[in-house]
Every structure is written in C-alpha cells, then in structure tokens.
Amino acid sequence: MQAVTVDHIVKKYGSKKETVTALDDVSLEVAKGELFGVIGPDGAGKTSLFRILTTLLLADAGNAAVDGFDVVKQYKEIRNRIGYMPGKFSLYQDLSVEENLRFFATIFNTSIEENYDLIKEIYFQLEPFKTRRAGKLSGGMKQKLALCCALIHRPVVLFLDEPTTGVDAVSRKEFWEMLRNLKKQGISILVSTPYMDEAELCDRVALIQSGKIMSIDSPQSIIKQFTKKMWSVRSAEMFRLLNDLQQYSNTEKCYAFGEFHHLVLKNDAEGMDPVMHYLEHLSHHEIEMQVTQPNIEDCFIELMSQ
C-alpha cells in the first residue's frame, strides 16, 4: 500500500464565467517511508493538492487516498493519521510553546511524554523558551514549533506546505536535516517548495506548473532526461554577454544562472570555437566557457518551455 495515492484529481475555483483550474488531472503516488517533494512556483497548485490530501478541501473530480483511506469517505481516519504544517503559521499565538504542544497532543489523545523521542532533537532547541508565547518567537523557532506540533501524535504521513519559504539559507539547511532524520523514523513525508535547489534533497519529486505535473521521478533521473549539452559561459560584462548570446544565430536557449550563463546550442557539432569567435568579435573579454551539468532548475525551465 502506498502512503499517498492521487488519481486524476481536478480542482477548479471561481464562478462559471471565470474559472481557474488549480489542479488539472493530477496523478501521483508516494511510497511508504519516502521523502517526496512537490516543486513549483506560487500558484502552481501545491497548496490545493495538500488541502485535498489533508481532507480540508474537496476535489471536483478524481480520487485520492492517504495511508489507504479515501480522502472523502474516510476523512476521519486520515485526520488521526497525518500531521499537517500549513504554509501560514497556524499555531495559537497567545499560548506558550509548551501549551501549544500540549494542546495538539491532547487533541489526538496522547501526551508530550508518550511521543517525546520523536520530537526530542527538534524540541530540545525550543525548550529554553518553552514559556514564551508562540507569537513572540522568531521565524525559525516558529517553524520548529509548528513541526513539533505536527509530529506530536506520531503521524504516519507528514504534509509540509512550503516550510522553507522566506527562510534564510542556513535555516533552510537545518530544516532539511531535520526532515532526513524524521524519514529515518519511517514517516512518509510530502513537502512542497518553490526552491528548485531543494529538489535534490528529496527521494522523488513532482515538478508542477499551472496545475499540471510536468515530470515525476528521482531528481537524478529527471536530470538524466536532459539530454542536450549544457554550456556555462561568463565574461567581464555579464548583462551584455546575456544579450549577445541570446542574439547569436546558433543559440537555442540562454539564461542567467548564478555566476555563469547557461547556454544550449541548436547545433553542437562545431563545439565552442564558433561561440568564442563570435564573442571575441564583439570584444568581450575574460571569456570562460565550458560544458556543465544541468540541474533541476534547468530541467524545470526546459519543461516549462515545451
């Protein structure tokens, strides 16, 4: 049995006159114990999918199941078995750290003590502030508390909707370390993110855009499917270089990519020499060009433009 099954789910919003399709025939499966990423920009449909799976929203068509239970007919069973951390901070701001945690434990007929081992590593960092009101915590601490509250009843499947949005690079890294530790405890995790670089930390990912899944696979396999040769190019004037490369007759695609520009050529038979000539002719200097490995963001851009 799969942790999550999504079968041809459709979700639309709005009136008859103006409908927005948030999820357009989405299907996917998450295996038990898997760390599965739903990667896509704002408005791709990530939150709608999570709300359907957590039984908070009804789909217009299709079926879905979590831990073998149907999201419509058996929603009560599901609610007892899952943990959900919504994108927006949803704990009680006026309760203390400890009160929040105790409240969620009590709702699920359990106690902090009973499941303490599961949250120990995360809660340990919050314990010095356990009498502080949740509303007075820093962003990173709120995030840790929310994760503890979502875990305190030892869920089978954990849903994390954009846990790292707006969080700095250091806290993001720490958060993903926590997720990997939870995975070791056998919890299936569905996590959504707009940060493409986080895809590489998941077992498998679904790349989603405008309500449609563009690709589902392990990050390594998605990257392998990118069969074109990718060049990275830089020079002393990066913006002019970008424009010049985009104008170049043999360019299929060129875009900024951190320190370099990424370039895909229409015809790669002649290699880099003609490109170098072209750039030298336009008096670019300090030119560097080499073959590079594409990553998930390159794949996302490629899939978006198909």
Partner: peptide, 12 residues
Amino acid sequence: EPTGGVDPITRR
C-alpha cells in the same frame, strides 16, 4: 526580497 515564489523563467 522581490522574487520570492516565482517560477525560474519569470525570476530571470
């Protein structure tokens, strides 16, 4: 933080 949450093409 002008570009939070947008797709990679729009960000560029």
